[in-house]
Simulated scan of single mutants.
Amino acid sequence: MNLKDKTLLITGIDEFVGLRTAELAIAQGMKVRGLKSSTEQNKQLQNLGVEIIIGSITDSTIAQKACQGVDIVLHTDQLAEEAGAIKNFRDVNVGGTVNMAKAAKQAGVKTFVHLSSVMVYGFNYPNGVTESGPLSGENNPYCETKIEAETAVLELNNPPDFGIIVIRAGDVYGPGSIPWIVRPVLMMRQKLFACANDGKGVINHVYIDNLIDGIFLAIEKETYGEIFNITDGQETSWKEYFMRLAAMEGLSAPLSLPKDEIKLFLKLRVQGQKLFRKKVDILPESIDFMTRPYACSIVKAQSMLNYKPTIHLEEGMQRTHEWLQKTDIQSLIK
């Protein structure tokens, strides 16, 4: 499929992945429509001239309206938190995904890309885990509902009329990344950040533009019914990643503490924030997300899509540093 002049609908267009995808899609000659739940105006989207529809992915009327006259849907909208009530996650991550996919199918959309996550493998998977798994919900609502969403949406795959592609994104970093850039930097500035278990294990980082390259390749090649891990394909330890982040910002190297100690500290911090009616900024469960031991395999994406991550960690960090220097990141924490 030639992407030029195609109309792309992006759900969650005002979030990190959606916003950057819109920029790169327009640069490739695509027309972009965006669905977002927030009524707040976004200057970047206004400057891009994107057509915006405001509403929820769980609303079938809104979903049908958004999908009319669209060639491709990139579904990025999700509830991405470390913990919480499973019902809330299911409503958005499963119900919202299926609602959007059914609306797209009914509207005659050809391609539906579901943005999933390597978190479907859980916290303790085999080294070089491939798309065939094993999958593990870990009794975590985010992991569980991302697995459920993949299963549900792939049942609607019916090429050539309607094709589903699932992208399991790694830990997406770059300008605008809340979990892997903004939160760690803010905590480092307050001298509250520590690596768990000496930062052993591997971060499956993927620079935002590399992820979008992978998504566009999968659409161009019409790989319907397929699932792809998309990461930078580098084995970077958590310690190295966070040491680079601190050094880049001229901050002290993070301390290392046992995982259980950090979780206890965060638990007490959350209780204190709730007591003083402050917004809870980081949950103890986030440490489980930051102690995964191995790298995921991207061999399938490399062989089937000819995917080659072009922006390596050094350049990705430099681009992120330039963005951090001109951005008030505190304002990005909702």
Score class of each variant (00 low, 15 high):
residue 4 K to W: 00
residue 5 D to A: 09
residue 10 I to M: 06
residue 10 I to N: 01
residue 17 V to Y: 03
residue 22 A to M: 05
residue 25 A to T: 00
residue 36 K to W: 09
residue 39 T to F: 14
residue 43 K to E: 12
residue 45 L to T: 02
residue 46 Q to V: 14
residue 48 L to H: 14
residue 53 I to D: 06
residue 55 G to K: 05
residue 60 S to C: 13
residue 61 T to N: 14
residue 63 A to K: 02
residue 65 K to I: 08
residue 68 Q to A: 15
residue 68 Q to F: 03
residue 82 E to T: 07
residue 84 G to V: 04
residue 85 A to Y: 07
residue 87 K to F: 00
residue 88 N to T: 09
residue 92 V to E: 02
residue 93 N to F: 09
residue 94 V to M: 02
residue 94 V to K: 09
residue 100 M to K: 01
residue 101 A to K: 00
residue 102 K to Y: 01
residue 104 A to G: 01
residue 109 V to Q: 01
residue 114 H to W: 10
residue 114 H to D: 05
residue 117 S to C: 10
residue 119 M to C: 12
residue 124 N to E: 10
residue 124 N to K: 14
residue 135 L to Q: 15
residue 139 N to E: 14
residue 142 Y to H: 10
residue 146 K to P: 06
residue 148 E to P: 00
residue 148 E to R: 11
residue 150 E to S: 04
residue 153 V to K: 04
residue 157 N to K: 04
residue 164 I to L: 00
residue 175 P to I: 02
residue 178 I to R: 15
residue 185 V to L: 10
residue 187 M to R: 14
residue 189 R to D: 05
residue 190 Q to L: 08
residue 193 F to Y: 15
residue 194 A to W: 05
residue 197 N to V: 03
residue 201 G to H: 03
residue 207 Y to A: 07
residue 217 L to N: 00
residue 217 L to V: 05
residue 218 A to S: 15
residue 220 E to V: 04
residue 220 E to R: 12
residue 220 E to D: 12
residue 221 K to F: 07
residue 236 T to M: 13
residue 239 K to G: 03
residue 256 S to C: 11
residue 262 I to G: 06
residue 265 F to V: 10
residue 266 L to W: 11
residue 269 R to F: 11
residue 273 Q to K: 05
residue 283 L to I: 03
residue 287 I to E: 12
residue 291 T to V: 15
residue 292 R to T: 12
residue 292 R to Q: 14
residue 293 P to T: 03
residue 295 A to K: 09
residue 296 C to M: 13
residue 296 C to L: 09
residue 300 K to W: 04
residue 302 Q to W: 01
residue 306 N to P: 01
residue 307 Y to A: 09
residue 307 Y to W: 07
residue 309 P to K: 08
residue 311 I to Q: 01
residue 311 I to Y: 02
residue 316 G to V: 06
residue 318 Q to G: 02
residue 318 Q to Y: 06
residue 326 K to G: 00
residue 327 T to M: 11
residue 329 I to R: 13
residue 331 S to H: 08
residue 334 K to P: 13
